[in-house]
Amino acid sequence: MDHPPELTAEAPRVWDRPVVSVPVLICLSLVGGQLPSFSTAANLYILGTGGGLIWVGLSNRVPRRPAPRRLSSAALWWLLPVTVFGVFEGATFVLSVGDEFPTFSRLADPLLEDHLARSAAWFAWLAAFWGLVRR
């Protein structure tokens, strides 16, 4: 029996629900968190997961949430944290004096050596990537 279009709604696909996507992201993160920096496995794994998400995001396989057509001038507030971060990252990178005045990634490296913290970082990266794919 056909329903008028205004009464029908597209049901989310099974794999598109948080009850499925969150455990999948957790599993991927736990695997990623075990792979050490500079290893071939880590490079291949991030190439695979990121490449897969880029492929899904550029195809029209996932329903996307509507994007705003324009932004108000209040969006300029975002320049404040971006500028502060950019100034410090730029200064630490250009001066390049190591641990005396470290870049953000140099500060993050010791924290990411712990497997649990590394898995959490993997989860944050994958979850944000999944969020981007769906926008």
Binding site: S37, A42, I46, G50, L53, I54, G57, L58, W125, F129
Partner: peptide, 21 residues
């Protein structure tokens, strides 16, 4: 989709930079 490709590329690079090297 230049914006989409650019943002995906940036986010992938960020992950690679922190998590693979």
């Amino acid at each position: 989709p230049v914006g989409r490709i650019g943002l995906f590329g940036f986010w992938w690079w960020l992950g690679w930079h922190f998590l693979a090297r």
